[in-house]
Amino acid sequence: MIAYTDKVRQIARRLLEESRVEMVIGFRKGSQPMMNEPCFIRKAEDADKLVWDGNCGINLANYLTGRNEKIAVFAKGCDSRNIVTHIIENKVQRDKLVIVGVPCTGMIDKRLVASRTEGEIESVGENADKVVVKLSDGGSLEYDRREVLQGNCALCVHRNPVIYDELVADLVEEQTDVDRWADVREIEEMDTEQRRRFFEDLLAPCIRCYACRNACPLCYCPTCFVDESKPQWLGKGQDQIDIQTFHFLRAFHCAGRCTDCGACQRACPVGINMRLLTKKLEKDCFEMYRWEAGMTLDQRPALDTYKPDDPQGFIK
C-alpha cells in the first residue's frame, strides 16, 4: 500500500493542473507516527505533501459536505460507500466530485501497535506485509500487517471502492472467509442484565468529547441532538445514563447508513469500541432487509422504503 503515494501525488497534480478540480482531499503525514491527517490541496505544486499508507484510517467522506467547489477525493472502500450514502442523501452532487478509488488492504490500529510495543515509537513504516516500528532508542520491531489491522479492517468485505472515476492501483482481492459479526453474536447471547452491565462497562470511560460524532461522515446534522437545549434530550454531564443515551442515539442515527469504517473508534481518545452498537444495527439491516449501506446509487436505503413483506414480528 505504501507504493500508492507516488501514484496519489501524480493523480492529484494532474487533476489540479488540468483544472478538473479546485481542490484535492487526501492525507499528509501527521506530526506523530501513525497519525496521518486530512489534507486539502489547492495548488498542483503542493501535491507532493500527499502520502498514502496504512495510517489513513480517517474517513474522507466526512469533508465533502457543505462545499461548493469541485473536489477530488481519495476514497478507500468504506469512504466510497459513505460517498454513495452522501449522494443518496443529497449532501453532495456526483458531478461535483472526482472520486479516486484506493483499493485498500486495511488500516493499522495505532493503539494495538502502541500497546504491543515497549518504548517510545519514533516512526512506523511498512513494506508489503510487515509493519516496521522504529524506536527512539534505535531498536526496531516488525509486526505481521494482518495482526495489527483495525478491528473493522480485519473483518472488511468491501475493500475496493464501489464508485470511482479512476483508480490508484488494481483492485485487491476481497476477503471472503471472515466472520463479520462474531462479537455482536456474543453480546446477543447474553441475557438482558448481562447486556446492560456490558454496555455500562463499555461506555463508562467515555468523556463526552464527541470525537466519534465529529469523525463520523454520517453525523452532518447542523445541530446535533446532544447540543439541543429546547428540548434538552440529555444532560451535558458525566452521568452514566446521559452517556449511554448519547451512544445509543448516535448509533440509532447511523442505522442502515453505517459502513463500519471505524472512524468513530479510531477517533476515540479513550478507546471505546462503540462499533459494537452500530454493528448490531448493520447486522440487523443485513439479516432483515439484505441491505448494506452505500453499495449502489440505484437503490433506496432499507429504512426509507416499505415492502409488504418487511419483518414485523415485533408489532402486536
Binding site: 441532538f225 440529555l234 442515539l249
Partner: peptide, 10 residues
C-alpha cells in the same frame, strides 16, 4: 423517534 423512547425511560 428512538429519542422519545429513551427520553421517557430516562
Amino acid at each position: 423517534s428512538p429519542k422519545f423512547a429513551l427520553a421517557a425511560l430516562r
